[in-house]
Write a protein that binds this DNA or RNA. Structure first.
Lengths: 96, 96
DNA sequence: TACTAGAGTAACCGAATGGTGACATTTGGT
DNA sequence: ACCAAATGTCACCATTCGGTTACTCTAGTA
């Protein structure tokens, strides 16, 4: 599932928690945070800190993967993961 | 690439930014944040807020995917994405 | 050598965080 | 209807955030 917003994240966490038969207190304790924080994150709080988010996801047995977005208009090098010489040259053009 | 810690995230962001030929100021401006914040995140700040992180990743043309972790010892239902009846029953046992 | 771009660091500050503990509401079972 | 568990909300508070501005240091260029 693609995560684009904090709301996406919150929905996923809640769904996953319920599937595992945990309540908010269980998850909070296992993830080393507070129930209040779980509530807020499940509601899509955009300013929650990533450290706690990562710990929470780990607790839920979930992995976060990052990848070059194919739906984005990107250069060939961009997708390959190599340095994009065109982008760099373009940036250089901005010099006075 | 799997993201397990804030340091992972920071390393990825920096690598990606450089590949695209951007400097910290460029990225900060395009992502709607400050250069200071970019510096901190690239250094692995664990308390950066997810909202900004998501915006930054979007700016970098990157997508975040979430998935049930196969390396984790998980029940069959857990992997399938269905409700895990065993976990729920286990939780019920805790009732006094 | 002198200059510049880029990266890292520091101080300042208003604003928001996350934890605690309590209370209110909703839900499900007896 | 009653009760208990789970969820949602609130006030309080020490801590930290993120933005701004300015300074340093390094590497590469003229």
């Amino acid at each position: 599932m693609k995560i684009r917003t904090a709301a996406d994240l919150g929905a996923f966490i809640k769904e996953r928690r319920v599937k595992l038969g945990m309540d908010q207190s269980d998850l909070a304790e296992k993830a080393g945070t507070s129930r209040k924080w779980i509530v807020e994150v499940e509601q899509g709080k955009p300013r929650a800190e990533i450290g706690l988010v990562l710990r929470t996801l780990k607790t839920l047995g979930v992995s976060l993967d990052i990848a070059i977005d194919r739906t984005q208009k990107a250069s060939a090098a961009s997708e390959s993961g190599n340095v994009d010489i065109n982008n760099i040259l373009n940036a250089l053009k901005k010099r006075p």
